[in-house]
Simulated assay, not measured.
Amino acid sequence: MDIKIANQLFENGALNQMFKAGFISSKIFTYREIYLWVIVQMQTRGISKNKAVFEAQGQFNKDERTIWRAINSFSSTDRVVSPL
C-alpha cells in the first residue's frame, strides 16, 4: 500500500472503520507508525535507513525483521503487470 493512500485513509477515519469491521488487523497502525518514524529519522537526522531500522528496534521493541516488513509494506515498489 502506498503511504499517501494509507495517510488519507487514516486521516478520514476509514482505516479505523475497517479495523472495527474486522477487514484489517491492528498491524496496519503499528506498521504505519514505524514507517513514518523511520522516514522522519532519516530526513531530520540524515542517518542511513539501516541505522534508522536499528534504532527503531529499540524504539518500538520489535525485531529487525518486523521493522523491515513495516517499511516494505508501505514502499511503492508494486508494479502492475499486464495479463497479456
Rank of each mutant, 00 (worst) to 15 (best):
I39G: 07
Q59I: 02
K27C: 15
W37S: 09
Q59F: 11
F23D: 09
K62M: 15
A70R: 05
Y31G: 06
S73Q: 13
F54D: 09
I39H: 03
W68D: 02
F74C: 02
F54R: 02
A56Y: 11
S26V: 13
I67G: 05
I67V: 12
L36Q: 09
Y35F: 13
W37M: 07
S76E: 14
S26F: 11
A52D: 06
I28G: 03
M42Q: 08
G58D: 10
R65Y: 12
F74G: 04
S48W: 07
S26L: 06
R69Y: 03
S48Y: 14
Q41M: 10
S26M: 05
R69L: 03
F54L: 08
R45C: 01
Q59T: 11
R45W: 15
A52W: 11
S48D: 07
I47M: 12
S48L: 12
I24H: 12
Q57A: 03
K49R: 11
W68P: 01
Q59W: 12
I71W: 07
M42E: 11
T30N: 12
S73D: 08
W37K: 05
V40A: 13
N72P: 03
K51D: 14
R69I: 07
R45N: 06
R32C: 03
V40N: 09
Y31R: 05
V40T: 10
Q41F: 03
G58I: 01
S48Q: 04
I24G: 08
G22E: 12
I34L: 01
I71H: 13
G22N: 13
G46N: 12
R32W: 00
E55Y: 12
N61H: 10
Q41I: 02
Q57S: 02
Q59G: 04
E55D: 13
L36F: 01
G46L: 11
R65G: 12
I71E: 11
K27L: 15
V40S: 01
K49H: 08
N50T: 15
T30H: 08
E33D: 11
E64K: 05
F54T: 06
A70M: 07
A70W: 03
N50F: 14
S76N: 15
S76I: 14
R65V: 13
G46D: 01
I67K: 02
V53E: 05
E55R: 02
F23H: 09
R69G: 02
Y31L: 01
N50E: 15
I67E: 05
R69T: 03
R45P: 02
K62I: 12
V40P: 00
Q43S: 10
N50K: 04
I67H: 11
I67Q: 04
K62N: 09
I67P: 10
V38A: 08
V53S: 13
F74T: 03
S48G: 07
G46Y: 04
F54G: 02
F54A: 06
N72E: 14
F29E: 00
G46P: 09
E55F: 06
N72V: 08
K49S: 10
